[in-house]
Nucleic acid binder design. Structure first.
Length: 232
DNA sequence: GCCAACGTTGGC
DNA sequence: GCCAACGTTGGC
């Protein structure tokens, strides 16, 4: 059975002990060791291989955009709503970004480092766009929801001794001074495509369906500067 | 609600 | 390894 949405979906708070009580050992289960399985490789193994990036010794990006749905929507009878206000409402304003079921999105989460910044993007809603900023507060570790039969993002093909899916913990930092709608970003994207400018190859438009995506520092800074400018 | 874009599956 | 069929994403 196919995985469902790759956007984040649950409202689970992050383990509040995450701070200093999350030593490296915890994260090490998550290393990319794929047991060499003898014999036939499944289609998903192949998909994963294709999506797998070269292991970069130096992280390429330090800014991110992560999508989640701020409006109620039932998936298998479960509400997948999780907007920036929901993150803000969690203990310590911190939550785990679970439910990502796309290899490229997962790989980007594995590239995230503590202290990286991410935009919280509202998707699949009345007004899509960037609502605020989060901090990455815990680096990639096993997404427990892949083993939970009751979870919307349960993945029967993932085994506890070689988990497929990872998540990070994020902490709410602040709202943008004004909501930056997708429509406005798109205007800049088109303008920059024609005349040059920082948003000309923004992943939001070139990789529209990717729920976790990188931004260059220039892209991030340009978007950030928009909060103090009048909408176009 | 529609549907284009694109990722995944699985037979061959 | 190819690729048609299928399923999901997410704007509109």
């Amino acid at each position: 059975m196919a995985p469902k949405r790759s956007t984040r979906a649950s409202t689970r708070a992050a383990d509040s002990s995450q701070g200093d009580a999350a030593p490296d050992g915890d994260d090490n289960d998550e290393v990319d060791v794929k047991k060499p399985v003898r014999g036939k490789r499944s289609a998903s193994d192949r998909s994963e291989k294709k999506a797998k990036a070269e292991p970069p010794s130096i992280p390429l990006f330090s800014h991110w955009l992560m999508k989640s749905e701020p409006e109620s929507r039932l998936e298998n009878g479960i509400d997948v709503k999780f907007g920036i206000e929901d993150l803000k409402a969690l203990p310590n304003q911190t939550g785990c970004w679970d439910g990502v079921r796309n290899y490229q999105a997962r790989n980007f989460m594995r590239d995230m480092r503590k202290g990286h910044l991410a935009f919280f993007y509202h998707s699949n809603c009345k007004e899509p766009g960037i609502a605020g900023i989060m901090d990455i507060v815990k680096e990639a570790y096993v997404d427990h929801t892949q083993f939970d039969k009751k979870d919307v993002h349960f993945d029967a093909s993932s085994k506890p001794d070689s988990p497929k899916w990872s998540m990070v913990d994020v902490q709410y930092q602040r709202m943008l001074q004004r909501f930056i709608p997708l429509s406005e970003l798109k205007k800049y994207h088109l303008q920059h495509g024609a005349n040059g400018g920082p948003l000309k190859s923004m992943a939001l438009f070139t990789r529209a369906r990717l729920s976790v995506q990188p931004l260059t520092s220039e892209e991030f800074q340009f978007v950030l500067d928009l909060e103090n400018k009048a909408p176009i």
